[in-house]
């Protein structure tokens, strides 16, 4: 993986070493200011991001409703299938969520270097820690301006790894373990994920942990959406364009 921070791109930009996609896609001059733009997130990464985000929203809403169902409906039970439908949506979204995640892992091998960032934490790199602490100082209002990053900044990368990679794996394993209780012993879900239940201390414990996992993800989403919007406004690079059309623009050409 390449260094996350952008090498100095004083015009004319030095062709960045080896990093795929590091050559600016375009440079425009806007209002007397030069914007250097790079293609960062390829289509599969962006597609995954939004599918994943949608799945998570659906999973959180339906998961919450599984745990705290709507007020009782009257009439014959055969007239309704409310909880059944909610659970069905949860499980369907769970399957899409899991398959999308596997797809995202595969794309890490096929895609550019920014496709791999999500799964790596280069803690052995000095530059990682420099970026990490600079970002903390930036968020603590101790530094007037942040560093520039082509991909994720190290702080974001850490959160993404812990919550979105480890957290997703945890939710998939506990989710399918719970699912296997319905499909029964001998089903593939049970053979692949059934062991999670005794490991984590029984069915009730797995429900509780799966439920806590939801709150961890909700906390992440709050912080994620806030920081992304904040960075889009305040940092030296654009954010939302990077995850919608793939292009990230830098607002200055200062080295560092």
């Amino acid at each position: 993986m390449t260094d996350a921070s952008l090498p100095g791109t004083a015009p004319p930009p030095a062709p960045a070493p080896a990093a795929a996609g590091a050559a600016p896609a375009e440079e425009v001059v806007k209002g007397g200011k030069q914007l250097t733009t790079f293609y960062i997130y390829e289509a599969p990464v962006r597609l995954w991001h939004w599918v994943n985000a949608l799945c998570i929203v659906v999973l959180c809403i339906t998961g919450y409703l599984i745990a705290s169902p709507f007020p009782t409906l009257s009439g014959q039970p055969s007239d309704h299938y409310l909880m059944g439908t909610i659970r069905f949506i949860h499980f369907s979204a769970g399957y899409i969520f899991a398959v999308a995640f596997i797809g995202r892992i595969l794309w890490a091998f096929a895609g550019n270097t920014y496709a791999r960032e999500l799964f790596t934490l280069p803690v052995w790199k000095k530059s990682f820690w420099r970026g990490f602490f600079t970002e903390i100082a930036w968020y603590a209002f101790l530094k007037p301006r942040p560093m520039k990053f082509m991909g994720h900044n190290p702080l974001a990368q850490t959160f993404l790894f812990v919550v979105m990679v480890l957290g997703t794996i945890f939710m998939i394993f506990t989710g399918f373990a719970l699912y296997s209780e319905g499909t029964g012993l001998g089903s593939w879900q049970s053979r692949m994920f059934g062991w999670v239940i005794p490991l984590l201390g029984g069915s009730m414990q797995v429900h509780t942990l799966h439920h806590i996992g939801m709150w961890a993800i909700i906390l992440f989403v709050i912080v994620h959406v806030y920081t992304v919007i904040r960075e889009d406004i305040m940092s030296r690079q654009t954010m939302i364009s990077a995850i919608t059309n793939g292009y990230r623009s830098f607002r200055d050409n200062d080295p560092d």
Binding site: F70, T72, L73, P77, S78, H80, Y81, M83, E181, G182
Partner: peptide, 17 residues
Amino acid sequence: HDKCYRRPHFDAGQYVE
């Protein structure tokens, strides 16, 4: 829960509050 005779009420969304 898998064989509970009240399960149709669970799936329907009919609960003792």
